[in-house]
Design a protein around this nucleic acid. Structure first.
Lengths: 189, 189, 189, 189
DNA sequence: TATGAATGAGTGTTCATTCAT
DNA sequence: CATGAATGAACACTCATTCAT
């Protein structure tokens, strides 16, 4: 029944919000239930434990993130454009989820399954970017990819904590990072 | 009494290990006490709460990190050397604390004081690096600084989870990132 | 409709197995439903609660047990034969239900109705045996009856937990107890 | 410190009462704590779980029961006297703990450690009685022992549920069972 | 009649913190 | 100063029961 799917999504949405804004440990199952408009027991009809719900939430986000990242780069032509689309997508994700600063990209180290999944996500994401870089005949594409993505990550704290940042600022950031990556630190001189 | 100072340090050392390896929430006060060789009650003679102990641990690490970062760059002459010293120091810190993967650089968002202190640390650290960059007449030095430091952060997961990485690999990473930052992605071609 | 009767029996059979092997508290309604091949809701169409299902299961077992006990003694002639048929029947019941070691003969004291029913069962059973004893002009037949039946009960744990026991061993046990009861402890000398 | 021992005993006493009157599953840790005059948390300073508390309670009872059973038979001379002392002790135990009808002699089958301990208790108890019987050159002393003890068990329900029973009745019961065991069913004729 | 999704009261257990010694 | 026994609030999870379909 499609209803079951909908219910599951409703719970995942609520869990995304609560986990995202409070972090795993401060998030309470009862809060997720209330936000989803269901009872505590219902949560356990769809997910076997708090941990597995957390993992499911993250998995969904990972998949979505990668799906859109890929789709958008595919629509671009030049190397610069492709990197720019990655950067925009990455930073906009932070921007759009700024209310949920604890949403993934980090995981309790005591949760092996989650850590594994997180690694895999980064592997996939970096692999995606590495492919673009390889096409430029650049060596060590994976190292490059990590460096590039990490620069993007570095702006998360700004985006999350600075209320004045606009979508336009995000675009400028993205442009800046792409240029810096391609041309090196003297590019604006 | 210097004894009091020593006791405090012993507790901070233990707390660093336990918080660092388990994360804030999985770390138990009793474990810290045991590792420090004192009783649970004693912890509260030196720190008013788990949270304040956590903050103290991080503060000490921040200060130490910044102190050494500054000292080492001061010993260097060229821009390249200075950046390299930052990179080495940063990555070696990850390398030397790989047993404590949860040690700071991230904080529970529900802990405002800690978040503030974390912001300040990054501000200070980025400021330090920004000064080096500014000396090169590069504009937006703070943005550059964030980008540079973020690239370094990006290798943390590798360093922490890959047991085969040697100190030599760390040096190569550092060299790589400095070159990438200065010359841009085509630097090896 | 006979179908309703059949369904009820199917549920009672399943409940006998589950209550018998797990005990009242560890038995779950969902397990009973699954084993009976019906839904959880259906259970409540036939029995108003877990407790009443439990009582129904026990009642059925009590009735069956007494019915056969009576039938078999009626077929015997001598006192010895009659006691032997009781003993065999009693021990064989333990033997045949050894997979369900929690099946009744004991009840949660917090379940007054069940306790009452259990008392009644013992009253009936002891009454049955007491009648045989009275025919021998033995005084205090009810006391005798309790003593005799209790000896049989005492072998339950052996029968349930010892996998090597055969049906032949059961017969020997029965014979032993009858002799002991009739002749006293020196009967084999 | 002796205080720790006292506290432990206080908790065991409370647990004996609560487990004994409600049974394992209906007994609540909070009730035990209240009766012991401590907090719920304190229970866990002395026993790691509800189950281990339950086992500890039973172990204490087993040990005490066996200790006194042995001591009393040792004081007797003749076979009849020894059996009588066993019977009195056994039935008086039921009489004195009639307020705690769920107190041991039975255990949740889902609790392997407890079941094992229960088996061992019976082994020990039957062994004790078997030794007395063996001294009479009676064969299969262990079988006899089980039969004898089981007869005693059989009066538990009467003792527990019949408020009119006096200590004198208990003595008569004991005498009756010993005679029945030694002389067989026709002993009063 | 039959289903099974939904409920929510109930409980064992943990652990930061306190305080009498 | 130092201890560690005691506290009790807090929370994940279970499961008998209900009821809309």
């Amino acid at each position: 029944m499609t209803n079951r799917k909908q219910q599951r999504e409703k719970i995942l949405d609520a869990a995304f919000e609560v986990f995202g804004s409070k972090g795993y440990y401060e998030a309470k199952m009862i809060d997720i239930a209330k936000l989803a408009g269901v009872s505590k027991g219902t949560l356990y009809l769809y997910f076997s434990s708090k941990e597995s719900l957390y993992i499911a939430v993250n998995n969904r986000s990972f998949d979505e993130f990668l799906y859109h990242a890929k789709r958008r780069t595919d629509e671009c032509q030049t190397f610069h454009e492709k990197l720019y689309s990655i950067a925009k997508h990455h930073l906009l994700f932070f921007y759009e989820t700024k209310k949920y600063p604890d949403s993934f990209w980090q995981a309790p180290h005591q949760m092996p399954e989650m850590m594994g999944r997180l690694h895999q996500f980064f592997e996939d994401y970096h692999g995606l970017v590495a492919k673009l870089i390889e096409e430029q005949k650049i060596k060590n594409a994976f190292l490059h990819s990590k460096a590039f993505c990490s620069m993007l990550n570095g702006y998360r704290m700004d985006i999350v904590s600075n209320d004045d940042i606009t979508e336009e600022d995000i675009m400028n950031y993205a442009e800046f990072i792409v240029n810096l990556y391609i041309e090196g630190c003297y590019f604006e001189s």
